[in-house]
């Protein structure tokens, strides 16, 4: 249960079950909330996210081993987007890792994957001087996202993907300049007991309460992968177009052999952006065809509220991923013309 459940109910929220929690899906309507985030700012409760704390003398070296990115050289007060992969190279979760101190990292996992991440990190910790703890119960997470967010928070100097100690409503919080909307914005990590006071203080500064429904269309427009859709253990970071997060110059890490092999071999299906002309949006699971043959499948799709036409992400076989490639999406039995575009569909003027 989010510590903000009563607050959301009083705001008229419709709830959804998300990884075993009742989280706000929408308040007044997801389209208005979507536009509020693009034009001003939205306020999100993300308390369902999982937080793991990794501490100890070997913390950086351990994360270099367990994750695909290089975390040991991450400066204190900075964050990095990275992934935990299986030995097969398949993605177990995508993560944001913050370095809070020389020997202390905060690993933020998708709600449904927190247990897997915890178990796998503990398994990989063998031989390292490190403690891995599931601290999800210690943290509530509230985000303010949108071009007006900085003026509302007045954070002082805080770079994109930076994090620092801050105060909201007199409560000690961690303020991070991270998000999942494609806009400038902030994520406020606070104690669950402080969540109501922090939410109220932030809401008083004018953002629109925004639910998980608009979070999905916002991240889709921004071309950001969602675990369970674009990411799963059946695909690698290379397939998801996220080779940049894999530090191949590291000597060894979990999944390295499989990922190196795939990179050398090539010929794999990759994630692309698709745009269609009609108003019927491709949806997850719809087949993608070329020359009458299925060459892939849609992972996410919706009518883009910002752009006014459908956008979708899909995995397509090698040879069909170049921008401009003409494809067909089977929208419930009707072939709809689509073409491949470079992701993201939308980027802010940041």
């Amino acid at each position: 249960m989010t510590p903000l459940f009563d607050v959301h109910r009083d705001l008229g929220a419709t709830f959804t079950d998300f990884a075993g929690r009742r989280m706000p899906l929408r308040y007044q309507g997801e389209l208005a909330e979507h536009h509020a985030v693009r034009r001003a700012a939205g306020l999100f409760d993300l308390s369902h996210m999982g937080e793991l704390e990794v501490t100890g003398a070997d913390a950086g070296r351990f994360l270099d081993h367990a994750l695909v990115g290089r975390l040991s050289t991450l400066p204190v007060g900075r964050a990095r987007y990275t992934m935990l992969c299986h030995d097969t190279g398949g993605v177990l979760d995508d993560l944001v890792v913050y370095r809070l101190a020389e020997r202390r990292y905060l690993v933020v996992a998708n709600a449904a994957n927190t247990t897997v991440v915890h178990v796998m990190l503990r398994e990989h910790a063998d031989g390292f001087g490190v403690d891995v703890r599931d601290a999800s119960a210690d943290w509530a997470l509230i985000a303010v996202q949108g071009p007006a967010a900085a003026a509302m928070l007045d954070p002082g100097p805080l770079p994109y993907y930076g994090i620092r100690a801050f105060a909201v409503a007199g409560r000690d919080v961690l303020l991070a300049r991270t998000g999942y909307t494609g806009e400038d914005g902030f994520e406020v990590y606070c104690r669950p007991a402080d969540a109501v006071a922090v939410w109220r203080s932030l809401l008083d500064r004018g953002p629109t309460p925004a639910g998980l429904a608009c979070r999905d269309t916002l991240r889709l427009e921004a071309g950001m992968a969602l675990y369970g859709h674009e990411l799963s253990v059946r695909v690698t970071p290379l397939q998801a177009g996220l080779e940049r997060v894999v530090a191949f110059d590291k000597r060894d890490f979990v999944g390295a052999a499989a990922l190196r092999r795939q990179r050398a071999t090539g010929g794999f299906a990759t994630l692309v952006g698709l745009v269609t002309g009609t108003r019927r949006a491709p949806r997850a699971g719809y087949p993608v065809l070329a020359e009458g043959t299925t060459v892939g499948a849609v992972t996410s799709g919706a009518l883009s509220p910002t752009l006014g036409h459908p956008v979708a992400m899909a995995y397509v076989a090698a040879g069909w991923s170049a921008p401009g490639t003409r494809l067909t999406v089977d929208v419930r039995g009707t072939g709809v013309d689509a073409h491949v575009v470079t992701l993201p569909f939308y980027s802010s003027q940041r």
């Binding site: 899906l25 929408r26 309507g29 997801e30 389209l31 429904a213 949006a281």
Partner: peptide, 8 residues
Amino acid sequence: SSLGDIVY
């Protein structure tokens, strides 16, 4: 209201 904002 169950469907959410209807777009098409």
